[in-house]
C-alpha cells in the first residue's frame, strides 16, 4: 500500500518542489539587494530580515518545511532528495519559457539529468520498511 502514492501525496511532493526553489530564488534576489554581509558586519543579516523579498522567501520556505515534514512522515529521506532537486528544473524552465532567459546546453543537460534522477526514484518504493526495529532505533538520528 505504502509503495503507491495517493493523489494528495503527489500534491505534497509538488509543494516540496515548488516552494523550495521559488523561495530560494526570492531569497537570492533579496540578498542581492541587501548587499555583502561580512564577518564584521553580521548585523546586516538582521537588516536583511526587513527586505520584502527575503520575507517572502522565508514565508515560502516555511511552507516548504510543512510540505517536507508531511512527506518525510510517509517517505524516505533518500526518496525525497530527487524531488527537492526537481525544483531547480522548474526554476530553469520558468526562466526559459516565462522570462525568456537563455538556457545553455549545459543547463539543458542538467535538466535532463535531474529528470532522469527523478524517474529512477519514482519507480521505486517510497519507504523502507523496518518491521522489527522501528521506534527503538529511529530515535538515534545521530
Amino acid at each position: 500500500m505504502k509503495h503507491r502514492l495517493k493523489p494528495t501525496q503527489y500534491a505534497v511532493l509538488i509543494g516540496v518542489m515548488l516552494t523550495a526553489s521559488v523561495g530560494d530564488t526570492f531569497l537570492s534576489h533579496g540578498m542581492g539587494q541587501v548587499g555583502q554581509v561580512d564577518i564584521h558586519h553580521l548585523g546586516l543579516l538582521l537588516i536583511a530580515m526587513k527586505n520584502p523579498w527575503v520575507i517572502l522567501g522565508i514565508v515560502l520556505l516555511i511552507c516548504f518545511f510543512a510540505c517536507y515534514l508531511t512527506a518525510l512522515s510517509w517517505a524516505d529521506l533518500t526518496f525525497l532528495m530527487p524531488s527537492t532537486a526537481f525544483g531547480y528544473v522548474i526554476v530553469a524552465l520558468l526562466g526559459r519559457f516565462w522570462l525568456h532567459e537563455h538556457l545553455s546546453v549545459y543547463r539543458w543537460l542538467g535538466v535532463l539529468c535531474i529528470v532522469c534522477g527523478v524517474g529512477f526514484m519514482a519507480n521505486g518504493p517510497s519507504k523502507t520498511e523496518h518491521p522489527e526495529l522501528d521506534l527503538m532505533d529511529a530515535g538515534v538520528g545521530r
Binding site: A85, Y106, R107, G110, I114, G117
Partner: peptide
C-alpha cells in the same frame, strides 16, 4: 538517482 541529481545540479549552475 543521487548521482544523476548531483550531476544535474552541477550542470544547471554552469
Amino acid at each position: 538517482a543521487a548521482a544523476f541529481v548531483i550531476l544535474g545540479v552541477i550542470l544547471l549552475s554552469k
